[in-house]
Amino acid sequence: MSDDPLLSALARRAREERDEDRARVDLERVTRGEVSETDVAASDEERALFRPLDAAAERRIADAILASGPRVRVVKGAPSRKPRVTPIVLAFAAAAAIALFFLFPRHRDELPVYAFELSGNVAEVRGDEPKAVEGRATLHRDATLEMVLRPRVAVTTKIATTAALLRDGAARAWSPPIEISPDGAVRIVGPVASLFPDTERRWEIVVAIGPEGALPRDPAALLAAAAAPPPGVRVVRAVVDFAK
């Protein structure tokens, strides 16, 4: 027992909640498949909640896991160069761990939840909030940038991308190597030194993903779309700085 009355009260309430859970032991046996729901007295709502998810649901969940892929993608230093990195540069390279996480609607017509992780910072955006997410990273000039936007569940419609680089309020078209997998994952990868026009100072990356006909047609339109994405278009922004 704790000397802290609040902690003690909280622990007591947790034990009470556990007892409340145990009072539904018969229903929980339904979920475990140990008894049939017809053998248990319960309301319709209780039956709906405790009824074991069926094989189709389990298949959907497994498919979603397999489609999700690893969430973290690390920006690797270029191994071919002669090492000339200092500890501080190594720290920057580590800080450049970049991960993008991209969630499309599931099997219902609902707005998606987005999570975007960049250098350890995670931002989550509900479907009823603006459909653009942002992140930051500091990149080593000798590094390889790998950016992956992966749907949690496979996307069945055909998607395309358009990208731009932004600096000082001006947008320019950006055409890095982009791969789109059959399940809708988008991968941008390449040496930092060749991906960007220069690595003197900060760039902002803006990537829009969506049906080809719905995508912005030029960098200026993409910039506008980043502020107010058109229906069906998802926009990801990332600010990248370069290690000194």
Partner: peptide
């Protein structure tokens, strides 16, 4: 609550 909510939560935990 609905069975769909349960499935969604279960999927979120697995993910």
């Amino acid at each position: 609550s609905t069975a769909q909510e349960v499935e969604d939560l279960v999927q979120e935990v697995f993910l």
